[in-house]
Design a protein around this nucleic acid. Structure first.
Lengths: 139, 139
DNA sequence: CTAAACTGTATCAAAAGAGGTTACAAAATA
DNA sequence: TATTTTGTAACCTCTTTTGATACAGTTTAG
């Protein structure tokens, strides 16, 4: 496939914006640090804007910056802002509905999926962008 | 397909084996309930055998059955037995090592990845195959 | 007012993973 | 010995993600 790395890139992007403070950072610059194409960054920033985590300005001397303080950006927000996949997928084809197990499997798995997702969000809620920044800087 | 559904299928397969008790269940039968090809099931069973969760017998009147009691099979074992992907992937290309953020990003993200994975395993450890069986049967 | 600098997005190509299929060897049973 | 069943390799196709190009729309600077 091409495993989904949007969350990882988002953390990278946000860390750069956090370091930039109030200054607008250009997608070109960010792409240079992440080592990818500026469009990939802009696409991602678009999602982060929808979630009100960053603000971007179009036009000359435009760019992006954080919409709030790093200490107020929980990683769970970032996770929820992006189309990250589930930990495991359900089987694409519907199970055999004539089988007592197959019939009830999807509902069970779907519930389990949600529970796991909640665990992940809780874990990510323990960290803010400030924590990330500190770890990156002390390294 | 993109998303990995091996874990979901594994739970389905194991539930069927659990219902089958000591009897050997054929991959053909399981495939019928999951609604896929028998080879897909056998590939999965191969992983579950390596993890000593199931035992299979080759040859006429062969098939698979659980290697231990449903109450002793934690879903975390199943998760660990399979090549499930991480919640998020790291970026395929290495970040710009000249950038102070890029330079330290991978290490941080890798640590976060492991932490999340641990959360998932802890969550899944709360359930055994017996719990699954009960929920499936009461539905 | 115009040129330049950016973002926002559409569209396309390329890469990689997953699942599905067929085929067949090896093993166990009847 | 013929049959049944697993184990696995090989190959195809579908889907998703990333990367890349192109260009419209918006700001700012001069």
């Amino acid at each position: 496939m091409a495993a989904n790395s949007q969350f990882a890139i988002a953390i990278h992007v946000l860390t750069i914006l956090a370091k930039g403070g109030d200054e607008r950072v250009k997608s070109d610059y960010i792409a240079g640090s992440v080592n990818t194409n500026p469009v990939v960054i802009r696409r991602l920033l678009s999602n982060l804007q929808d979630a009100r985590i960053v603000v971007s300005q179009v036009g000359a001397s435009g760019g992006s910056s954080l919409a709030k303080q790093p200490k107020d950006i929980h990683l769970s927000e970032v996770y929820k802002a992006l189309p990250c996949g589930e930990v495991f997928a359900l089987h694409a084809k519907e199970a055999n509905q004539d089988c007592p197990v197959g019939k009830n499997m999807a509902a069970f798995l779907c519930g389990l999926q949600k529970e796991i997702d909640k665990s992940i969000e809780e874990k990510l809620h323990q960290y803010t962008l400030r924590d990330v920044l500190e770890k990156i800087e002390e390294a």
